[in-house]
Structure formats: structure tokens, C-alpha cells
Design a binder for these strands. Structure first.
Lengths: 234, 234
DNA sequence: CGTGCTTCGTAACAGTTTGTAACGTGACGC
DNA sequence: GCGTCACGTTACAAACTGTTACGAAGCACG
């Protein structure tokens, strides 16, 4: 079974208890908290698969909290609220909520929607690298992940530095998806690189060694690998 | 910009037309169909980023169709229905829908939920139409989406900047449809541009590079691409 | 420990892109 | 005809990016 970990952020203790009991019976691992500080602490403490976030949290604002969480993490968030007006719902979606459920709600319907979001989130690609033990082909080029070797369409071998290889792998893991400098820096586990122009330099050097047209610039945004990638299992 | 491809499956022609027009103005590439056969054909023809699926399709059953599609593909599906009872919603989620929206609905809320699902699905804007309709012809001109190249009727090549290309694609996605500045800004994912006269400048620069007569001004309203667009499969 | 090489970052410069401001011009209502 | 306002166009400034140059850090080797 799933054993997903849910975080219920709800300041109404009775409501939170009922919700937690129900969800636990449905096979989820539930953490409860009632305010912003508790939610952030729980997120810091460990991985959370989905957040049920009440909009009205007493002193704290659920919408603002949603935005705050979303800035740092891509964790699925379902907002729960007694406020059901369209503009209030849209405010929730605006700050990155995956769904917005008005109180009172049918618990079974909530469950269905939790499952729908979890299913979808489970398949979302992340910025992490994929399997290393394969050969990737893109636009006539070839990257052997086991040997860290890059072969040009003509058969020539190109030697990349460690950092260039890491960058290439980031692109290969996210083909045709525009990546910001911040995302690239994060994928390289190098937060400092996000500040200066190190990423630009790196991209420039990689471009010089492989086909410059393969990495396109998204002005004001970042860079994209302009080719599809085929994974050859070996 | 977005340029996601949506498939609207709706047997009420008027409703479908309104929906398609609205979504096109929001910068989506919309395909319409009214029944199961049409939906399956569209899915077979090319990649679709999201399906808006009406539950009541005359002879066909939307819920069954959803299940059928889900068995074959992981494409995001939002069900749309006049049936808003909880058990009917749950039936939708049961067969793999990502969201379920009851009619009548606020178009802006629908838009927010489409965006939420697309974001979670992690789909890069579909490049299918680039491949399948990778060459668009309009009034003797030609736009190769794969290379972002524009060719004049005489055969000369015109080089457009990124933003000019984006604007041209917005027009090509909405031929003969008058677009307000706000709609263009929205399609360009640039809310700031709606305020000043950036859109006017952009249109002016695009006009200068291609035939000025191709983009007509709707005084007091916005601009129209004054040509039909043919999609050349490649 | 010094030397030479490679790698990788910052600084600086130039070319391009794009928005704002300003001004003229043409269209529309009267 | 005429005033007003939307729009086209020019000029300019700011931002972004590619590229070069250069220096620091790491590493192999004698």
C-alpha cells in the first residue's frame, strides 16, 4: 500500500482530529499541526507527500503560507477552506495550490482528490538525475553515462570536464524543458553558482564543445536542450 | 510562452466553441471534438497536454471514455459536467480524472485549474505541433517551428528575435481572431506588458520584419492576423 | 616544494534585445 | 473642417547575454 505521509495544517483541533483519524484509517501516515511555524517545522523535519492546508489559520494566513511553501518546495498542496467564492479559490490556485476544496466536504471526495493529486505528483519529473547506467542519444550525439564519454555525430570523441559533464547530464535529464539558472544551479548542488554568471560561462563552454545550437537561450529565463533524448538501456 | 495543446471533448457545439475561443485567447492551442471517436483520433494524431472532457456526450459516456484513455495514456484529464453530486464526482476521480469541474463554471477558475494540473503534470509545452505541423504557411510566408525560421514569399529568410517569434506564434495560433493587448500579453505570459505600450512596439517591430499588412489593427481593440494558416505535416 | 597544466570563477566589453518616453500622424466623432 | 485620441515611429536607456581576458585553485610530476 501507499503509506504516503500527509501533513494536515488546521487550527480547528476537532476538525483536524477527525480528518487525521479518517485519513489514518485510509492508510495514510498523518502529521498534524495548527499553525505556520508547525507546518514549516514538519516540512523541515522530513519528507511530506502532500499537505492539506486550511486557509484560515487564526493568526496565520493559509494563502501566504502556501506561497511560502511553494517557493521552497514542489510538494503537492490541497487547500481546504470555508471560503468558497471563485476569487478565493483562484487566490489559492494562484499561489500554487494543486486543488481547492470547500468546507463542508464529503470525506470520500476529499480522499478521491488526494489520490488524484498524489497520482499525478508521483509521475512529475523532478530535477534529479535519472539512471546513470545507460547510453543517451540526442540529435546524433551520444553520451555514455558509465564512461562519461561524449561522442559527436561523426564518431569523434569529445572530452568534457567534470562540471561540463554534470551540466550536460542536467540538460539530458530535462530535455526540451526550459531551465532557469537557479534550477540548473540547484541541480548541480551549487547554490553559489546561482548568483554570478558561472552558469552562463559553463553553458558557453559546453556549447563550444558540442553543437552550439543544441542549447538554446530563453532570454530572460534560462536555457533549454533543444533535442529529444532517447535512453538506450545497456 | 505556453502553447500547450488542449483537447476539448464536448458535444454541445456552442459550449465547445465558446470554450475553445476563450482558451485560444489565453494562449492555448485548442483542438475540438464532440464524441469518443473524435477524441481517440485526436489522441492518436499527436501528443495532447490536457483533455477537457464533458461527461455527457450524447451516445457516448464520458466516464467510460476517461477510463479508456487513462488505460492507454497518462495525459491529464479534467472532467466537466453538469452532474455535480458527490458520487458522480467520485466516479470521475475513480477512473483517473485529475479534476472535476461542475457546470456552470467561472472560466477564469477553469483556467486556474488547468494551469494547476498542467504544472503538476510537469509537462513542457507540447512540441507536438512543432513536429506534426512544424511548417506553417500563411499568405505566402512560411514559419518553420523546429528552427524558429521565417521565410518570406520570395525565399528570403527573416531573423526574428525571441519575443517577436513568440508574438508571431500567438498570432499563428489564433488566425483571423482579433486579439486584445491583454490577451496577447497573457498569451506571452507577461502580465506587465499589458500595461504600457510594449505590445504596440512588439507588433510594430514584427510588422517591420514581415509584411505590415499581415497584422491589421482593430482600432480601439487590438490586432488581428489577416491570413489563414495552413499546417503542413512533415 | 616548484613547475606546468587544467579547470573554473569573476571582471569587463560589446552586441542584441526590449521597454519607456516623446512626438507626429491619421482616423473618427461632431 | 476640427479636435481628440489611438496608434506608428523614432530615439534612448536599461537589461541580458556571448565572449575574451585573467587570476585562483587544484592536481600531477619531477
Amino acid at each position: 500500500m501507499s503509506l504516503h505521509r500527509l501533513l494536515v495544517v488546521e487550527d480547528d483541533v476537532e476538525m483536524a482530529a477527525m480528518l487525521a483519524a479518517y485519513l489514518q484509517r485510509q492508510g495514510f501516515y498523518v502529521t498534524r499541526t495548527g499553525d505556520r511555524a508547525g507546518a514549516l517545522a514538519a516540512l523541515k523535519a522530513g519528507r511530506v507527500d502532500l499537505i492539506l492546508l486550511d486557509v484560515s489559520l487564526g493568526a496565520d494566513d493559509g494563502v501566504a503560507l502556501c506561497a511560502e511553501i511553494r517557493q521552497a518546495q514542489d510538494v503537492p498542496i490541497i487547500m481546504v477552506s470555508a471560503l468558497s467564492a471563485d476569487h478565493q479559490r483562484m487566490a489559492g490556485y494562484q499561489v500554487g495550490a494543486d486543488d481547492y476544496i470547500a468546507k463542508p466536504f464529503n470525506p470520500d471526495l476529499l480522499l478521491a482528490r488526494i489520490r488524484a493529486v498524489l497520482r499525478r505528483a508521483g509521475r512529475a519529473p523532478s530535477l534529479t538525475h535519472r539512471r546513470r547506467d545507460s547510453v543517451l542519444r540526442f540529435a546524433g550525439w551520444c553520451y555514455d553515462a558509465r564512461r562519461d564519454e561524449v561522442t559527436a555525430p561523426g564518431g569523434w570523441q569529445v572530452s568534457l570536464s567534470g562540471r561540463e559533464t554534470a551540466l550536460l547530464r542536467v540538460f539530458l535529464a530535462n530535455p526540451l524543458i526550459p531551465l532557469t539558472r537557479e534550477e540548473i544551479a540547484a541541480a548541480l548542488d551549487d547554490d553559489e553558482a546561482a548568483g554570478g554568471r558561472a552558469i552562463d560561462m559553463l553553458v558557453g563552454r559546453l556549447r563550444q564543445k558540442i553543437d552550439p545550437a543544441l542549447i538554446r537561450t530563453e532570454r530572460g529565463t534560462g536555457y533549454v536542450l533543444a533535442a529529444e533524448v532517447a535512453h538506450d538501456p545497456v
